[in-house]
């Protein structure tokens, strides 16, 4: 790594983050730093706050106390700051959230034109480039409803990556897919990781975590309970809760 990269601020820096829904506290004093180029996998039982945590990073969820910095920029309630951060952060959702009234190509090209200010031709060319990377260029003129779940999710990844974000958030990207389609989406994510993209992935795909992650985080009841490199995390989990969870998802 070069010196410049060493001194650059981390991709995500979260300190003392607390969040409540009414009286229910969903995030307890979360501290987390994601380095540039790091591949982070977040797992945990449902309701543990893992989705909420990554959704606070691009301000899809608010929080009551603590601090979030994305690429060194402190997340405030200022509209321009929020938009700046959202332009640096790509996100992939469990339900794909493609725009059904636009074709696959338009799904990718419209944000490029509106947000990145590309011309129609530039936006189309760049969209086709990224659609090719997720191996779906031949579907460009179709509408999302005509595609399988796996294809839709790959388009969603292409749409986010085409914006050339500094980091990518994945919120359970394979949980809504039929089993035979999980692999095609994971393959695309692995390829993205191989290119050095900074990634924070909420997932139950432990195989993916083993293969790709630099670090695995286990959350329960709004707290980070345990974290470590995948090899140690899976072989010698420290806490009972982690062990119990791993037994459930690995069998």
């Amino acid at each position: 790594m070069s010196l410049a990269q060493d001194t650059a601020p981390p991709a995500i820096q979260i300190t003392g983050l607390n969040k409540w829904y009414g009286v229910l506290q969903v995030l307890h004093d979360v501290n987390l730093t994601v380095a540039r180029g790091e591949r982070l996998v977040i797992c945990g039982p449902s309701g543990s706050g893992k989705s909420t945590l990554i959704r606070t990073v691009n301000a899809l969820e608010g929080f009551q106390s603590g601090e979030i910095k994305v690429a060194g920029i402190r997340l405030t309630r200022d509209q321009s700051v929020v938009e700046d951060i959202r332009r640096r952060v790509g996100m992939v959702f469990q339900q794909f959230n493609l725009f059904p009234h636009l074709t696959v190509l338009e799904n990718c090209a419209l944000p490029l034109r509106l947000v990145r200010g590309l011309s129609a031709v530039e936006a189309r060319d760049r969209s086709m480039h990224f659609l090719s990377k997720v191996r779906i260029p031949e579907q460009a003129t179709k509408y999302p409803a005509q595609l399988s779940g796996g294809q839709q999710q790959r388009v969603a990844i292409a749409r986010a990556v085409a914006m050339q974000p500094e980091l990518m958030l994945f919120d359970e990207p394979t949980s809504a897919l039929d089993p035979e389609m999980v692999k095609e989406v994971l393959d695309v994510m692995v390829a993205l990781a191989d290119e050095g993209m900074t990634m924070a992935v909420v997932t139950h795909e432990m195989g993916f975590a083993r293969q790709v992650a630099d670090r695995v985080i286990f959350m329960d009841a709004g707290r980070i309970v345990e974290q470590g490199q995948p090899t140690t995390f899976f072989s010698t989990p420290k806490s009972d809760r982690t062990r119990a969870f791993l037994q459930q998802v690995l069998h």
Binding site: L60, R86, R87, M91, F93, Q95, F99, L114
Partner: peptide, 21 residues
């Protein structure tokens, strides 16, 4: 809700989210 979230997460401005999505 997911349509709003996807548009916002892409960094689109509120007017664009409303008129284009």
């Amino acid at each position: 809700k997911g349509q709003w979230e996807a548009a916002r997460a892409l960094g689109m401005r509120p007017v664009s989210v409303m008129t284009r999505i």
